[in-house]
């Protein structure tokens, strides 16, 4: 899944209103699990609502991420091919 290793993109580097997919979480099991149970597991898709402070929208949930954690979440930018179709309904994986 993490094929492009040349330029790793972190969640806190994305501009507001972009959609992304979580590809990797650096760091411990706790961080990964906490993200997963709150709706942001590896492979999930979400949207940046605000950058400062970092708020992410996953499905019907809004999550706030602290600075420390945000710098550990590796993401892939989703080029909005189906943006208009998915922007209203929550994005789902699979």
């Amino acid at each position: 899944m993490t094929t492009q290793t040349d330029s790793t993109l972190y969640i806190d580097q994305l501009p507001a209103d972009t959609e992304f997919e979580v590809t990797h979480v650096r760091g411990g099991r706790r961080a990964k699990q906490r993200l997963a149970e709150l709706g942001l597991p590896i492979g999930s898709r979400a949207r940046i609502v605000e950058r400062y402070p970092l708020i992410v929208s996953v499905g019907e949930t809004r999550l706030a991420l602290g600075r420390g954690l945000a710098s550990k979440v590796v993401v892939r930018l989703l080029v909005d091919d189906s943006h208009s179709a998915t922007s209203e309904a929550p994005v789902e994986n699979g």
Binding site: K32, G39, E88
Partner: peptide, 28 residues
């Protein structure tokens, strides 16, 4: 492997939702 466990659980949830919810297409 734990990534896969989580992914499968969300896949299960997403599948259940797809088959049971009819969403109003209008803006929320």
């Amino acid at each position: 492997p734990e990534n896969h466990f989580n992914e499968a659980a969300y896949g299960f949830a997403a599948g259940a939702i797809r088959e049971t919810i009819r969403r109003n297409a209008l803006g929320r």
